[in-house]
Amino acid sequence: MTKPTHGDADSAVADALLTYPLVLVPPTLKPNVMRRITRLARPRFSLTWFDYALWLFGSGMAATPLLALQFITPQMLFRLQVEFYIIAQRLSPSFLLPMWLGG
C-alpha cells in the first residue's frame, strides 16, 4: 500500500471528523428527566380550606374581647377589677416570678 501524502491524510482525517456519527439517545432519558422534574416542581402558593378555617378562628379570637367590652356594664367592669386585685394579692411574688421570667 502506498504511503499517503500529508494532504491525503489531512483530507481523510477531516472527512472522518465531519462524519463522526452521533450515538442514539436511550429512549428512557426524556421520561426519566421529566419524572424527576415533576417531583421537583416548585410548589405554587395556594390557599386550602384549613387556611380559611385558621383565619376565621384567629379573627374570632381577636374580636371576642372587643365585642365583650362593648356589652360590659360599668358594674361588671368594677367587679372584674376587684376580682383581679384579690387574685393578684393572694398570689405571692415568689410564685409569679417564674411566670415573669417566661418559664
Binding site: 491525503d8 483530507s11 481523510a12 482525517v13 472522518a16 471528523l17 462524519t19
Partner: peptide, 24 residues
C-alpha cells in the same frame, strides 16, 4: 488551525473512515 472547509474533501474509502472513527 486550518478549518475543515479549507481542506479539499476527497471521497474516502469506507474502510479508512471506519478505521478513523474507531481511532477517535
Amino acid at each position: 488551525v486550518p478549518d475543515e472547509t479549507d481542506v479539499v474533501a476527497s471521497v474516502e474509502t469506507d474502510q479508512t473512515r471506519k478505521f478513523l472513527h474507531a481511532q477517535i
